[in-house]
Design a protein around this nucleic acid. Structure first.
Lengths: 93, 93
DNA sequence: TTTCTATTTAGAAATATTTCTAAATATATG
DNA sequence: CATATATTTAGAAATATTTCTAAATAGAAA
C-alpha cells in the first residue's frame, strides 16, 4: 500500500463523500453518480483514483460495476496516524 | 476543524515527512529545511499549509520559529476514519 | 546603527488535478 | 442483429499546487 496514493485519494471532498456513501452498502457507479451534480465521466475518474488507492474494490455484475469500501486500507491509514501520534496501544510493532 | 484542509495537508509527501520529523521533538523552520533538498521558501510554504490545517503549532523564540506536532487534530482524523470503517469502539457518538 | 541570520512573502514557471464533452466499450434486451 | 443502458477512456480547458528566485521582514549581535 502506498500512503502517497491513499492520502491523495482521501484529500478530495467528492472522494471522501463517495467513501461515506459506501460505508452503508455497496453501490453501482451510476448510483454513486446520482448523489452528485457531476457527469458520470467525472465520477468514473474519482472511482478510478479510489480504486488505485485500494480504498474501494469493484465487482462487475451484468452491465453494472459495483463498488465497495475496503476497510483494511482505512485501517492502515489509521495505523500511520496512530504512529505519528505516538500512541503504541494498537500497534503490532 | 476542516477535514478538507487537513486531508489536503496530509496528501503531500514532504508535509507527511515534516510531521514525522516533529513526532520526536519540536524543530525550527531551518532545522526542518535541513532535512530536505529544497529552498527555505518552499519549506515555509509547506509549514503554512500544515499550520492552516492545525496539524502543527508554532512558537517564536529569538529569531527562530519552532514548530510542534498538534496530535489532537491527528486524533480527529483518526476518528473520521474510524467512523468510515464502522468501528464504534472509540467513538463518543 | 549596521549587519547578519532566520523566516516569510510575492510573483512566476512547471506540473498536477478536476471537470467537461464526445467517443468508445461492454453487456443486456427487443 | 440492432438498440438501449452503464460505464470508461480520450482529449481539452480551467483551476490548483508545488517549486523556485528575489525581495521583504524581524530580531540578534557587533
Amino acid at each position: 500500500m502506498a500512503f502517497a496514493e491513499t492520502f491523495k485519494a482521501l484529500s478530495d471532498p467528492v472522494r471522501r463523500e463517495i467513501l461515506t456513501l459506501l460505508k452503508k452498502q455497496r453501490l453501482s457507479a451510476g448510483e454513486i453518480g446520482n448523489h452528485f451534480d457531476m457527469t458520470g465521466a467525472t465520477i468514473s475518474y474519482h472511482l478510478s483514483i479510489l480504486k488505485k488507492a485500494e480504498l474501494v474494490t469493484e465487482t462487475k455484475c451484468k452491465n453494472f460495476v459495483y463498488y465497495e469500501l475496503n476497510t483494511s486500507v482505512v485501517e492502515e491509514v489509521m495505523l500511520w496516524l496512530s504512529d505519528l501520534k505516538g500512541d503504541y496501544q494498537d500497534e503490532t510493532v
